[in-house]
Simulated assay, not measured.
Amino acid sequence: MDIMGTTFVELNDDERRSLFDLAEYGYVFDWTRQSSYKSSTVAALLNGEVAGLVEFERQPEDQLNHLWLIEVATNYRGTGIAGKLLAYVAKDSIEQGFDGFVLNEAKTALHELYITKYGATPIGKTRLLYFDTEAAQRLIERYLGGE
């Protein structure tokens, strides 16, 4: 599947609240709610469909983006949409002056995948992971074509 035509759209509050019935597309999280009042929700659109969603919060006090949620529609799993969403958050971190740093608390099943496939670094023996400048740049080059 060609995912080169992926477009990213930051959703406003009304658009986010309209994401109430995504279960039929394989989404598990409740995307109508925010994890933090300061977070942003971004949709990856492909072929007129919401291929994936990510919720993250810019945290200038810590010089990083905190990744709250990321999820890909069933039809798009394994196509690179998750990598594109991660790269989007990493690119935003660079644009905010955070040097690409992204913090994430990975679900147990995906913890190793974030490390082996996407280049995250674990923090001690916790489920916390971070992407540093180098990992962020690799994500951007691989999934966004170095934009």
Rank of each mutant, 00 (worst) to 15 (best):
G78C: 06
L46R: 08
G124P: 15
D2N: 15
Y25D: 15
A73C: 04
E57W: 08
S18E: 11
M4K: 11
F101R: 04
E15D: 14
P122C: 06
L86S: 10
G80M: 01
Q63N: 03
N65L: 08
I140E: 03
Y114G: 08
T116K: 05
D21M: 12
F131P: 04
E141Y: 04
A23Q: 13
S93T: 13
G48P: 15
F8W: 08
N47V: 12
F56T: 10
R17G: 12
Y76Q: 07
R33S: 15
G97T: 14
W31T: 14
A109S: 06
I94C: 00
E57D: 10
Q96S: 13
F131T: 07
Q137R: 11
A106P: 03
I115P: 07
L64R: 13
G145S: 10
E134P: 09
E71K: 00
L19S: 00
T32N: 09
I140P: 06
F101E: 08
A43H: 00
S93G: 14
Y118P: 13
D92C: 09
D132L: 02
A87N: 03
Q59S: 08
L103V: 09
G48S: 08
L11A: 06
P122Y: 02
G78S: 10
V42H: 06
Y130W: 07
V28L: 11
Q96V: 12
G26I: 14
E49V: 13
F98S: 03
L69D: 09
A106E: 05
V102A: 00
T74H: 11
T126L: 01
F29Y: 08
A120M: 11
L103G: 15
T6V: 15
A106I: 05
A23V: 08
T116R: 03
G83E: 08
Y88R: 06
E147S: 11
D13L: 06
I94F: 01
K107Q: 15
V102S: 03
Y118L: 09
L46W: 10
Q96M: 07
P122G: 03
I115C: 00
M1W: 04
D99S: 14
Y114V: 11
I81N: 01
A44L: 01
A136E: 12
D132M: 00
T116S: 06
D99G: 02
K84Q: 15
L67R: 00
L103E: 08
R127V: 12
N104C: 13
P122L: 01
G145W: 04
S36R: 09
K117P: 05
G83K: 03
